[in-house]
């Protein structure tokens, strides 16, 4: 289907943005700077509106004004106290709101982190051993995990058995970093290919429409 002039105009905006950012490869320049600063403003505006519709409207406006849950006035009042950070004399009052924010966040995080990032990880790492390829892989992974953790153990000098374990640990970590690096590079290259294909398709559509 042939694209409309309107669709081409919108795609043209995307093409200008893409070319503007790519122009940075030739060095810092005004074209890049304009696009970069516009992007800063657009991102800020986008997130403000997204949070306005999803958080402010749903959690403040609907709860207090529509559903009459008056107890939501308290966190709203605390949120407004945060604005006192703009005053040098009264900035300390905003600490009360910050205290609730930090206290609730850490209170939620501590047990959840223990469960999800420590216990569940250990549960996944320690399982019954079977005498096949999967069992051997499991033992290698468990040894790798133990050695990698010993690399982060600083309460004892890394000599003797601990020294050997930490050396094996850094080897495991390097394989992990290498795999992570390889995947990241391929992800970025995939994005690059996608942008180049977009520019090619856009120019084909544009010239096809004109001529």
């Amino acid at each position: 289907m042939e694209p409309t002039w309107g669709a081409l105009a919108w795609q043209g905006l995307a093409a200008i943005v893409t070319l503007g950012i790519f122009s940075f490869l030739a060095g810092d320049n005004p074209f890049y700077k304009i696009i970069e600063r516009t992007w800063v403003g657009v991102t800020t505006g986008y997130w403000l509106m997204l949070l306005y519709h999803t958080s402010f409207h749903d959690k403040v406006w609907v709860n207090i004004v529509v559903q009459h849950k008056w107890w939501y006035i308290l966190p709203t009042f605390l949120g407004l106290l945060m604005w006192l950070r703009l005053s040098r004399k009264l900035a300390w009052i905003s600490r009360y709101a910050l205290a609730f924010y930090i206290g609730i966040s850490t209170g939620i995080y501590i047990p959840l982190a223990f469960k999800n990032f420590v216990f569940l990880q250990l549960e996944g790492a320690v399982r019954p051993i079977s005498f096949d390829a999967a069992g051997i892989n499991f033992v290698i992974a468990l040894v790798g995990l133990t050695c990698s953790l010993s690399y982060f153990f600083f309460s004892k000098p890394h000599t003797g058995i601990l020294g050997g374990m930490s050396k094996a640990g850094i080897l495991t970590l390097m394989i992990g970093f290498g795999a992570g690096f390889g995947l990241t590079v391929m992800g970025r290259v995939a994005l690059l290919v996608q942008r180049v294909i977009f520019l090619r398709d856009y120019s084909v559509n544009l010239f096809g429409k004109i001529f």
Binding site: L51, F56, K59, Y72, G79, M82, W83
Partner: peptide, 15 residues
């Protein structure tokens, strides 16, 4: 409590 931190966070955003 989760709503509290969302409300405080969203009202701190304008700063």
């Amino acid at each position: 409590a989760t709503d509290w931190i969302i409300v405080i966070g969203i009202l701190a955003l304008p700063i």
